[in-house]
Amino acid sequence: MRLRRHKNQVSHEQQAADTIAALTQSRRAIVDAYENERHRIERDLHDGTQQYLVAAAMMIGEAQLSPSVQGDAELAKRLDEAQNALHRGLDALRATVRGIHPQILSEQGLAAALEDVARASANPVRIVCPNPLPRIPEGVLATAYFFASEAIANGAKYAPGADISVLLTADDCLRVSVVDSGPGGAHFVSGHGLAGMRERLAAVGGELTISSPESGPTQLRASIPLLLNRGEPGVRL
C-alpha cells in the first residue's frame, strides 16, 4: 500500500512538473515569436526603407551640385527643403528602429538600456539594479524594457518634474518597480494606459500592481516570469 501511494505521489509530481514545463514552453514560444517578428520588422526597416531614403538623399545631393540647379534659386530652395525633409524622415525612422528593439538591450542588458531611456527623459530618473540579473530569454527582457519605458513616459506626462526611480530585481520572476513622486491618483481605464500595460504583461504570464494614493507617490510594479526551463539557473553564473 505504501509503495502504491509513493508511486501515485511521484506520478502526480511528475504530471505537475510536466504541466509547468509545457506552460513555460508555451509562453516562451509566444515571447520568442513576438521577438522574432520584432527583429524582422527592425531588419526590414533598416535594410529596406532606410536604404531607399539614404539613396534618395544622395540623389538629391548630387542634383544640388548641378549647374542648372545652382542657377535656379527657386529650384535650389525646393531641393534644400526636400533634402531637409528626407533627413528628418531618416532621423525619425532610426529612432523608430531603435525603439523596436534597442541594440543596447541585447548587448549590455536591461539596466543599461533603461539608463539610455533615463537620459532622454524630461524628468530626473534613477535606475537601481542592486544585483546582476539572471540570464533570461530576450523576450522577457524586452517586455520589462517596454513596460519600464512606458511607465517612465507616463510619469513624465502626468507628473512633470517629479523624481522617478526604477528598481530591477529578480527571484522566480523579473520584477520592475517604477515609482514617481508626483501627486498620485493614477487608475485603470479599460483599453488604455495602465490597463494596456496589464494586458501586455498578462500575455507572457506577468502581473501589474499599482499603488497611487491621491497624495502620491505612484508605484507601478511588474512581475514577469523568467520562463526558465527546468535546470536553467535563476542567477547569473
Rank of each mutant, 00 (worst) to 15 (best):
R2P: 05
H6V: 09
Q9F: 13
Q14W: 11
D18C: 07
I20A: 15
S26N: 10
S26P: 02
R28N: 00
A29T: 12
A33V: 02
E35I: 08
E42K: 14
Q50K: 14
Y52V: 13
L53W: 08
L53G: 10
I60Y: 01
G61K: 06
G61T: 07
G61S: 10
G61M: 04
E62Q: 15
E62G: 00
E62T: 08
A63M: 15
A63H: 10
Q64I: 12
L65S: 13
G71K: 10
L75Q: 11
K77A: 11
R78D: 08
R78F: 02
D80C: 11
A82T: 07
A85I: 09
H87I: 09
R88I: 11
H101Q: 11
Q103A: 10
S106W: 01
E107C: 05
E107F: 04
A111P: 03
A112M: 02
A113R: 02
L114P: 03
A118K: 01
A118H: 01
S121F: 00
A122R: 07
A122W: 01
I127G: 10
V128Y: 04
C129W: 12
N131H: 15
P132E: 09
L133P: 05
I136Q: 08
E138F: 06
L141I: 04
L141K: 09
T143Q: 12
A144W: 10
A144V: 08
Y145W: 09
F147D: 03
F147K: 02
S149L: 08
A151R: 05
A151G: 00
A153T: 11
N154G: 08
N154T: 07
A156R: 02
A156T: 06
K157S: 04
A159T: 01
P160G: 01
G161F: 02
G161Y: 01
A162D: 08
D163I: 02
I164H: 04
S165R: 15
L168G: 05
T169K: 13
T169H: 11
C173H: 14
V176Q: 00
S177D: 10
S177E: 11
D180T: 01
D180S: 05
D180A: 03
S181R: 10
A186V: 07
A186H: 08
V189M: 13
L194D: 04
E199L: 14
R200N: 14
L201T: 02
L201M: 06
A203Y: 08
G206L: 00
E207N: 12
T209L: 08
S211D: 13
S211H: 14
S212I: 00
E214P: 06
E214S: 13
E214Y: 01
T218H: 09
L220E: 06
L220T: 05
A222P: 01
A222S: 04
S223Y: 03
S223H: 13
I224S: 03
R236H: 14
